[in-house]
Amino acid sequence: MEKTVNHKAWFLVLPVLVLVAFSAVIPLMTVVNYSVQDTFGQNQFFWAGLNWFRETLASERMWDALGRQLVFSGIILAIEVPLGILVALSMPKKGVWASVCLVLMALPLLIPWNVVGTIWQIFGREDIGLLGYTLNALGVDYNYTQGFFAAWTTVIVMDVWHWTSLVALLAYAGLQSIPNAYYQAARIDQASRWAVFRYIELPKMQGVLMIAVLLRFMDSFMIYTEPFVVTGGGPGNATTFLSIDLVKMALGQFDLGPAAAFSLMYFLVILLVSYVFYTVMVNMEKREGK
């Protein structure tokens, strides 16, 4: 059957365009406008040219926050992806327990970010928190408000607790879609467990895992609420990630110009990474489709 080409169908996309214009494009344009000006409030603006960009590029503070951000995203991806796959592999394939597992796995995903932060903030406290108190009773010097290592560990473990389920659920969906015939063929060939994983399960999960990596990278790269509630970016600047720094600059110091320049650079990095992931994903689908 021949496909009908009707360009008028593009008008159906208009409502979405209007929505995106108001929620993203217009605010983004405003940020671009702010990034080349200085303001002292009262809606009065003064031309600053490219100074804020120059200042931000030369600022150690921005590079430090970017470095911390990349390390954080790298660590959580390195933990959450393998762990998520492992969890998905160990979940029952069908039956009541499969449903129970799914519900349990979905629970952390339903908790709002600031509540997760509050839970871990209390959980880690050395006076009343179960984790903090126990660790200190065992002789471990654990205090996330003062120790660099303790703060980072808490923030990372919290993220792993909150988001590994997402990777696990996506990987589980990928696993469930593998037809049984593949496993039967593997059994006939007497393939080892590792070979089944390496040559059947992993390639079949590739698509969903790419989505999982993309989602986790983006979310972790933009993380704000959880570390802000737990450590407030401290001790010192130890857990001041990009968005925490950005909010400090824009709202705390009311430096709208530099903050706008900063956020545009932040946006560009995110745009680049999203585009790379998107291209890889689309091409993977095309190759599979052939």
Partner: peptide
Amino acid sequence: MDWMAWTWPTAAFFA
């Protein structure tokens, strides 16, 4: 449009 703080160079950029 005042709140968007338009300038000629940024308007030219978007145009």
